[in-house]
Design a protein around this nucleic acid. Structure first.
Length: 297
DNA sequence: AATCTATCCTGTTAGC
DNA sequence: TGCTAACAGGATAGAT
């Protein structure tokens, strides 16, 4: 369930302690997540400094001093938590041993020494194990198979009506499915697609190319591009949405879930002015779609 | 080439 | 009370 806003929130939470930190060791508590950990993964990371923490679509990118990059995907239920040694354990002369607070579904532990000399652990927990970690160690990062085909980021101003029109032209798949396709726009998932379509008052069932005009952009494309950018920006500002498994790196919760207008709100009134419709749930491609049949056309 | 479907996984909840 | 079934769903491989 972590979509772009949640991954960005995780990135921002981990950045202050991970950037500039030294990797003392990596502990893998099982051989695989969704995919096996790469051969020699832990050994390759040990001793390296973390240069930067980045993000592309729903991928968290850990840039290391050797130009290696760890590609990390949280799947549906992945989360990171920071285990820090407390004051007492840090006191000079105090007997010190790393806390071994292992919780269920903790699969990988990064033992770090941060820039200011404190030791800490960044723990990856993932009950459903849909997440994965891979290592990019050769060639340009953009050429990695998982990143090469990704579409445009919905953050910033690059995503406009014209670009959206270009991307959707000729696509006869339902608009909902087209927006979930990471090759079109990178980082949207079920929640934010539903919310963006509601804001744009566009039906998820409509064939994607029907919002494209002959010349390209259209009023509908403009509305949709604006809606996508807005919902993503607002969700990031709220620290993402905490539903089911997702928690921020510091253990606190995002609060954008309270701003949902349609997602998970079947039977509730549509929140649009002058619309008396009711939110409905339908299934598209085996996934739930929430929308208002009255005003989303 | 585009589009659809099955698959992976486990915790939670709804239904009988 | 205890069991089973449905559901959450991102990305890929394979089928159509």
């Amino acid at each position: 369930m972590p979509e772009l806003p949640e991954v960005e929130t995780v990135r921002r939470g981990l950045q202050p302690i991970m950037e500039g930190a030294h990797i003392d060791s990596v502990e893998l508590r099982r051989p695989d997540l969704r995919f096996p950990f790469p051969r020699g993964f832990a050994e390759r990371l040990r001793g390296q400094e973390i240069i930067a923490l980045g993000r592309r679509a729903k991928y968290l990118l850990i840039h290391l001093e050797t130009s290696d990059v760890v590609l990390c995907h949280l799947g549906m239920s992945g989360s990171f938590r920071i285990d820090q040694d407390d004051e007492e354990q840090q006191a000079p002369g105090a007997f010190h041993h790393p806390r071994s607070k292992v919780e269920k579904h903790d699969h990988a532990v990064f033992h770090l020494t941060s820039g200011d000399g404190r030791t800490l652990r960044v723990v990856y927990n993932d009950p459903r194990r849909f997440g994965f970690m891979l290592l990019h160690d050769e060639g340009p990062l953009d050429s990695h198979p998982l990143l090469a085909t990704l579409g445009i980021e919905p953050t910033g101003n690059a995503l406009d009506g014209a670009l959206l029109a270009e991307r959707l032209r000729g696509k006869r798949t339902p608009l909902k499915a087209a927006l979930l396709d990471q090759r079109v726009i990178a980082g949207l998932g079920n929640i934010y697609v539903c919310e963006a379509l509601w804001r744009a008052r566009l039906s998820p069932k409509r064939s994607a190319d029907t919002i494209v005009a002959r010349r390209g952009t259209s009023e509908r494309c403009e509305r949709l591009a604006t809606s996508i950018r807005a919902v993503i920006a607002e969700a990031i500002a709220a620290g993402g949405s905490s539903l089911r498994d997702y928690v921020k790196a510091d253990g606190s919760l995002g609060y954008f879930q309270h701003a949902f207008k349609v997602y998970g709100r079947e039977g509730h009134a549509c929140g649009h002015d002058e619309c008396s419709g009711t939110v409905r749930r339908i299934v598209q491609g085996g996934r739930s779609t929430f929308y208002c049949p009255s005003c989303q056309r």
